[in-house]
Design a protein around this nucleic acid. Structure first.
Lengths: 202, 202
DNA sequence: CCTACCGATCGGTAGG
DNA sequence: CCTACCGATCGGTAGG
């Protein structure tokens, strides 16, 4: 929780960010248990013991990374989905943001999706709660579209699971220097989402 | 590779299977690097050193599990997709099998999707090759449907990524004692697949 | 299949 | 921010 809600004037140290960044890369490549504090230290040019001047523990680094990831996804959803507009526009915007996030944050996506069981109880429950919040927001968006007759009679639950998972998968294959631009991919997936729910406003 | 291609008359020991089973459960719960040989031994009531009478190494257990998983998925696809039938029937059958596998093998799905980087070079390349083979089979199935005008003009690559990922996701939430039966889920996802490609034969 | 044990590495602390 | 070091645990082997 060191990266959010810090109203104190003393800003977060650059070294702290540097260490977090190195940990994020290594956790995503080798997994939490496959990464040693010594490797993180080597990546930033410090001795292992010096890391503890910036972070309480290895576990704290993981918790900060995973909580921030879910908060970013939730903030992204809230920023682009306007409840005053149609469910079609909401779904298009949500899928666009969801895919953009995963295409540009493959390290966060990888860690977020494989290390839930590596978290200590308290932070695991916190991350689980945020994930549930995100899933519920999607499900409600789809339920609204179905109720208002804007979407076909699909299952909001199954459809939201399928769309979320498909979007997360983008983090596994998207490359900035590939044939498809970020705009292309985000647009294609948003169109897929509207096709899957059978939106009548497209 | 101890579970496949064993033409020798001496059959695979029950103990070997027992150990593999325990390793699969533990790897899926705590990850490969988060699991110790001592925990696997405790799960089957042996001392850690006795495991080495049945398996060469911890790494060998992981390789066997991950290779077998991909071979099962490929065999499942080949068993249900009949090239003589329509692309629509092929996609329906492929998605049905894909979802059934993931709903009933959540441990294998979890390990398969998070431990690729924990594999030693040789087996990692082997698993990567099998994954590529599976992805290509799906992509070709979709390309055929598009070429023959049976599906809409979707991107076989992106659509196959989305469908594969959505189906894998089922392993994360499906419960045998839940509201939806295995048949329900497999059927719903197969319908989603046909809707996503805009099949004209439904 | 076990006891006994190997060197290596783990996350983290003491003390300055 | 470093050196020096802690106890614990790691995967694996020797020998019977």
């Amino acid at each position: 929780m060191q990266s959010t809600g810090q109203a104190a004037p003393r800003r977060v140290g650059a070294r702290q960010d540097e260490i977090r960044e190195a940990a994020l890369t290594l956790f995503s490549e080798r997994g939490y248990h496959g990464t040693g504090m010594e490797q993180i230290a080597a990546a930033v040019g410090l001795s292992p013991s010096s890391l503890y001047n910036h972070w309480k523990s290895k576990q704290d680094l993981l918790a900060d990374i995973m909580v921030a990831t879910m908060e970013d996804l939730l903030a992204g959803f809230a920023a682009v989905v306007d409840p005053a507009r149609s469910a079609t526009e909401g779904l298009r915007a949500a899928m666009d943001a969801h895919v953009r996030y995963h295409a540009t944050h493959h390290r966060e996506a990888r860690v977020g999706n494989r290390e839930l069981t590596s978290l200590a109880d308290a932070s695991r429950e916190r991350v689980r709660g945020l994930r549930q919040e995100y899933a519920t927001a999607w499900q409600q968006l789809l339920a609204t579209g179905v109720e208002q007759g804007e979407f076909a009679e699909v299952s909001p639950r199954l459809t939201s699971f399928a769309l979320l998972e498909a979007g997360i998968g983008v983090s596994q294959w998207y490359r900035p220097d590939g044939a498809l631009t970020l705009d292309d991919v985000a647009h294609e997936y948003a169109e897929m989402a509207l096709r899957l729910v059978g939106s009548r406003l497209t």
